[in-house]
Design a protein around this nucleic acid. Structure first.
Lengths: 119, 119
DNA sequence: GGTATGCTCAACCATCCGGTTGACTATTGC
DNA sequence: GCAATAGTCAACCGGATGGTTGAGCATACC
């Protein structure tokens, strides 16, 4: 019943699209620590303020960021729920990569001279 | 140390980009059940074989699908590891949406006439 | 009041994306 | 051998993306 809410927050295409950009993932990562202004988000990202502002609007449109104006500063806040729905989609495939990793471990275990060093 | 391998498989941008399309996610979902040919993957997806072929190539480029030719049929096989690296990136944010869901539950618990029905 | 700061908006540009069509290759079945 | 089947490839097209510049608008500071 909570899952229903999680799934409805934004459509998958747009969420994954929003995540398909390093600058935006960088922003999300830093917003996970604390709220930041547009300028602070832009600062380490070799691009103009206008470009950063557009990235933030992409994140806002899919519900990943909420922006509140405080004086002349626009403060951004992480809204994590769309990430939960993306994670939920991925979780369906977990058994597949688990099997794959089990196979790998089996391979390592049967390695005769293995000392933990991979290659 | 296995994580190292998982993270290296493909760059995040491309993986999330590949997932940012419903047709491609549909393909992955069905490949999770069983291997399928290009034609079988295309069949339920209102688009030409050529378009489907291009989607499959996107999935191949990021390592999500491996294609083997068998006669005139091209059989596609799910390669799940890039999904694991996407999931790993998302897992970092899990605590955020967990907190958020806890807040929601708290809200529901304090609801005076709550009977479990969400609107 | 006047100037610097923080940010948005609109216009523009090059590139990418998702789709089509048409031509082509290779296999299969009669 | 010939026609049908299964796919790929290249060219093209319209719309989305990711960036820039320049203008404009509030707010903060002296």
């Amino acid at each position: 019943m909570l899952n229903y809410m999680v799934d409805q927050i934004a459509d998958m295409d747009a969420v994954f699209q929003a995540l398909a950009n390093g600058a935006r993932r960088n922003m999300l990562g830093r917003l996970a620590e604390t709220d930041l202004t547009v300028g602070q988000l832009a600062e380490p990202l070799a691009m103009t303020l206008a470009a950063a502002s557009k990235h933030i609007k992409v994140l806002e449109r899919v519900g990943l960021v909420r922006q509140t104006v405080s004086g002349r500063r626009h403060v951004c806040h992480l809204e994590p729920m769309p990430l939960a729905s993306a994670a939920a989609w991925l979780r369906f495939y977990e058994r597949h990569w688990d099997e794959r990793l089990d196979d790998l471990e089996l391979l390592f275990d049967s390695e005769p001279t293995g000392d933990g060093e991979v290659r």
